[in-house]
Design a protein around this nucleic acid. Structure first.
Lengths: 119, 119
DNA sequence: TTTTGGTTATACCAAAAACGCATAACGGTA
DNA sequence: TACCGTTATGCGTTTTTGGTATAACCAAAA
């Protein structure tokens, strides 16, 4: 058996909830950023390595729980369709990014200080 | 529909992983503390409002992944049996508690500063 | 020696959630 | 009108989770 504590690592996460239901977190942030960048839910899903179905479900759930749209969707057209972020979504991304900044680093620093590896 | 941002709240958590598998977090910390206090996995489960089955599964998974025992278990005997924490478990609880201290408060402060309610 | 009682341990079935494939709807463009 | 790539969704399958029932265990009491 390996030495106690080896390979152990700390992880942390922040997310938003409404009525105890998760509404926004790191994974969904990345998804929205990729939609913003690519103009397509489909392309964003591929970039994340998840199915379109899953990406769509995430976005749909977010919007239903928040009560306002995050993505403007267009079906058909020249490119087959496209998706852009609403101003609400942009604001959300901006604030969440600030909220998250530095937290992981801080946690990791404390983790090392406490010497979890040498339990 | 309600005003945007109303009812929204921030949540955060820290946990330990080995090979990407969760090994220790807030729920499991509480479970171990209750085992410590009551001397029984069964009593701890009841106090947390979960089934013995679930509590046992948590502890078993933690031990398997960590590679060392957290709970000394005794079957049978006068009280039917009993469970106590190993020194490793005590150390783990202590360190994790420090790691977690202040984290939630800090997140909440930043959340208010950013005015998520008024998205 | 036998029974009792409360705990640990596990097998097994049910319910729920996640997953992903298949298919329809859509509308510029050629 | 046919085509193409995207959005949208139904539905069966797989995986995960959960809970109930049951066995194993052993000190002490009967």
């Amino acid at each position: 058996m390996s030495a106690p504590g080896s390979g152990i690592q700390v992880r942390s996460k922040i997310w938003l909830e409404i009525d105890g239901q998760p509404v926004f977190g790191q994974g969904r942030e990345e998804l929205l950023r990729l939609v913003q960048k690519s103009g397509s839910i489909n392309a964003a899903a591929k970039a994340m390595g998840i199915t379109y179905r899953k990406a769509w479900t995430y976005i749909d759930a977010m919007e239903k729980r928040l009560g306002f749209p995050l993505v403007n969707r267009l079906k058909g057209g020249s490119g087959g369709g496209e998706s852009t972020l609403t101003p609400h979504a942009e604001t959300l991304l901006e604030k969440f990014d600030i909220l998250q900044q530095g937290f992981n680093e801080m946690v990791n620093r404390k983790f090392v200080e406490l010497d979890f590896k040498g339990l």
